[in-house]
Design a protein around this nucleic acid. Structure first.
Lengths: 203, 203
DNA sequence: TAATTAAGATAAACATGTTTAATAAATAAA
DNA sequence: TTTATTTATTAAACATGTTTATCTTAATTA
């Protein structure tokens, strides 16, 4: 790596570190690019040169933690529980994470979820990873004969993810709603959905 | 009504009319408050005095059409079809509407769906109306014994709405995705979900 | 009717994300 | 080594949503 490339990476990291700190402290709206630039010791223009936009910087700043969180959540998945319990386990882990800083994560999701996929590469890849993992859970249940063979695991995972998003919207829209309450709603909805996938034993 | 109140309403309507026109023509981002103010023949400050923010103005500007659309979609609902077909009918109607101006409706939904309920009164009431209608459909199926009696219609409607939102996200995120393709995915997901609600005839 | 108050409208200012044009320094070319 | 070129950085400008202080005029009151 060049001397130039190296120093470029260094300022990039300075900006990222400052952004992580300030975004977490003050939230997305209350934290300006000028604030971050000042904390990083660079010019505001540099922030935009290194990261295309404030939204892109937010996505980049939170991505590492989110990827690590997903990895940790997957690793801590209890092996001995049923499919519904495991789906809820994962969802609830994320609810709890988002609950620690609702405004910040609301901003992140709000700014990324409806945008064209290419514009939000990290969130796109994170949700794809999430959905693929769900599909894996579903497929392994299917292999054990507990789910109808004609069910497409990716499609079913996408449906579970949609239900999860619906619950997430509740969490963000209703400040007084607790993680537990949202998880309960999601449990009911997902339970009903899985019931539709379930192979029925002929009585 | 006062002369003062009357003229206030008049400028409000001027702004709304200009906003409807310009938002539809240029989209949310490409259309500035100054543009709208100029077209309405008022000052930019007036726009903000009458509508709390640009987002609130967008919500207000599109609300009438959306409420009317929902009314029309409900009215045109075929009576002779099954629950799944009817759910899809309604969803597809909205997909087609949004497809006419994806950027504009993406902006609307993006700016409202994750915000606290009180901040987006129109979108809140629109989606509540949507969900209540779905719940009505589900309840009437339940009354005919086609859906398990223990299912809560509102909860099931919320689940269907979540699936609808998941499909909507696909539509907005993937520019090349057609309304038909999205409707097909939603059909599969909703079909599986309804299967879980269905009362099974003991063979 | 005259004086006072309240309210609607706005010009000007402000805050902040983003762009542009200029600078300086490192790399490549001669 | 000297020159030319590319590039990271930035200061200044710009665009635009929003706020503030001012002005005008309608409503109210004396």
């Amino acid at each position: 790596m060049n001397r130039r490339q190296a120093s470029k990476q260094e300022t990039r990291q300075l900006i990222l570190a400052a952004a992580r700190l300030l975004f977490a402290q003050k939230g997305m709206e209350e934290c300006t690019i000028r604030d971050i630039a000042k904390a990083a010791g660079v010019s505001p223009a540099s922030v935009v040169v290194h990261f295309k936009s404030k939204t892109a910087l937010l996505e980049e700043a939170l991505n590492r933690d989110l990827e690590n969180a997903l990895t940790a959540f997957i690793a801590s998945m209890p092996e001995d529980q049923g499919l519904l319990e495991r789906l809820l386990h994962l969802a609830t882990d994320f609810f709890r994470l988002y609950d620690q800083n609702r405004d910040l994560y609301r901003a992140l999701i709000r700014h990324t979820i409806f945008e064209p996929e290419g514009e939000t590469p990290h969130m796109t890849s994170l949700s794809e990873r999430y959905i693929r993992f769900l599909a894996g859970l579903i497929e392994s249940e299917q292999n054990r004969g507990r789910i109808k063979p004609e069910v497409d695991p990716m499609m079913a995972a996408a449906a579970c993810f949609s239900l999860y998003l619906g619950a997430l919207i509740m969490l963000f829209r209703q400040a007084e709603m607790s993680v537990e309450a949202v998880a309960e709603v999601l449990a009911a909805m997902t339970g009903q959905y899985l019931d539709g996938l379930t192979e029925r034993i002929k009585p």
